[in-house]
């Protein structure tokens, strides 16, 4: 019950269906299209439920067309759910669009909210009026954000002269000027270089820890999630696949560690029962440890002495691999599936 008390976002059986006119291929099809109007139903989001507590940082992950953006758009009040119940800060976002908008911040990675031809500061000033931010609070936030996001040098430069990284930092700052309780980010690191990505991630993670701002972000980039979000929600084809901590996903999927044994000279083929041989380069042999209860000692015990073993390397799978495995197998393991 304690969880319910602090939940600031609650989705229960949320669905969204789009209607799209059918298109027909070729010249004949196009002519046919002049007279024919049929609709295809697209189930972008199907029966999704979750709750998010104040102060959480949640990564919303899925391949293209998985319904990530649609979910964000429903939570920010842009789209109306076709079914189910959705509540953000205790309200249905669409029917209270403006009140909701005043308490959230939204960053779209692929479309700028800054005024292209004008200095960054002008866009910020306009937001001060739109969000009715008290002057003192505005000055304080602007100072804090320009310091944290290293924007001092370019606040008075026209947006069109900024690099993508500078612009994205300005977008994020603009979404935070009015002290939103929740920050939604749709693909915030898309197209950024490594340094810019790192700056954005460090800032968001710090913001979440220091100011307690709830963060919900969609991404393709798993490193975003590893560095910012302890909790992961995975979707595919509109359906919820996984909701939980990143570490739990790793554990539940089995670790599938990779073992590389390097010998002084090629000892010939060595087959083991504790590990599966995946590649044999002669002196170097690659194995996969599929069972969690088998330790490195078990493998070495089975291998025995006398092969001239020089080096051992055991690698944990990275999150990318875990997720790839997850999408490939789409397991319905108890404890993983919601």
């Amino acid at each position: 019950m304690g969880v319910m008390m602090t939940a600031i976002i609650a989705a229960s059986g949320v669905s969204k269906t789009f209607h799209q006119p059918k298109r027909f291929a070729g010249l004949r099809g196009a002519l046919k299209g002049l007279f024919n109007r049929d609709y295809t139903e697209i189930h972008a989001v199907t029966d999704i439920s979750f709750t998010i507590a104040a102060g959480e940082a949640v990564g919303y992950l899925g391949p293209n067309g998985a319904g990530k953006s649609t979910m964000i758009k429903m939570m920010t009040g842009i789209l109306v759910p076709s079914g189910g119940a959705l509540s953000v800060l205790g309200r249905a976002p669409h029917s209270h669009r403006m009140i909701n908008a005043a308490e959230i911040g939204v960053v779209f990675g692929q479309r700028s909210q800054l005024w292209w031809d004008l200095p960054v500061r002008d866009s910020f000033e306009l937001n001060r009026h739109i969000y009715d931010i008290p002057a003192a609070r505005y000055a304080e936030n602007l100072a804090y954000l320009s310091d944290m996001l290293a924007m001092v040098g370019y606040l008075d430069r026209p947006v069109r002269q900024l690099s993508l990284g500078q612009r994205m930092r300005a977008e994020i700052a603009m979404a935070l000027l009015h002290d939103p309780k929740i920050l939604f980010l749709d693909e915030p690191t898309i197209g950024l270089d490594v340094v810019a990505k790192d700056a954005v991630r460090k800032f968001l993670s710090k913001l979440n820890r220091e100011r307690g701002t709830t963060i919900i972000l969609t991404t393709h980039d798993l490193q975003d999630i590893e560095e910012i979000c302890p909790r992961l929600i995975m979707v595919d084809e509109g359906k919820l696949l996984f909701d939980g901590e990143v570490t739990r996903l790793r554990a539940a999927l089995g670790s599938r560690r990779r073992l590389t044994l390097t010998f002084g000279t090629d000892p010939g083929t060595i087959t083991l029962t504790t590990a599966t041989l995946t590649a044999d380069e002669g002196a170097a042999k690659h194995y996969l440890l599929e069972r969690e209860d088998i330790s490195l000692l078990d493998v070495l015990g089975e291998l025995g002495r006398g092969h001239g073993l020089k080096d051992i390397k055991l690698e944990e799978p990275d999150i990318e691999e875990v997720i790839r495995t997850f999408y490939q197998t789409k397991p319905t393991l108890a404890g993983v599936s919601p």
């Binding site: 920010t76 009040g77 009140i99 908008a101 939204v106 479309r111 969000y131």
Partner: peptide, 18 residues
């Protein structure tokens, strides 16, 4: 199509006015 309309909808102001 470009989503700029979505960006207006997340502002606490009348969409037509904006």
């Amino acid at each position: 199509r470009l989503g700029t309309f979505d960006a207006i909808l997340v502002k606490p102001i009348g969409t037509w006015t904006y």
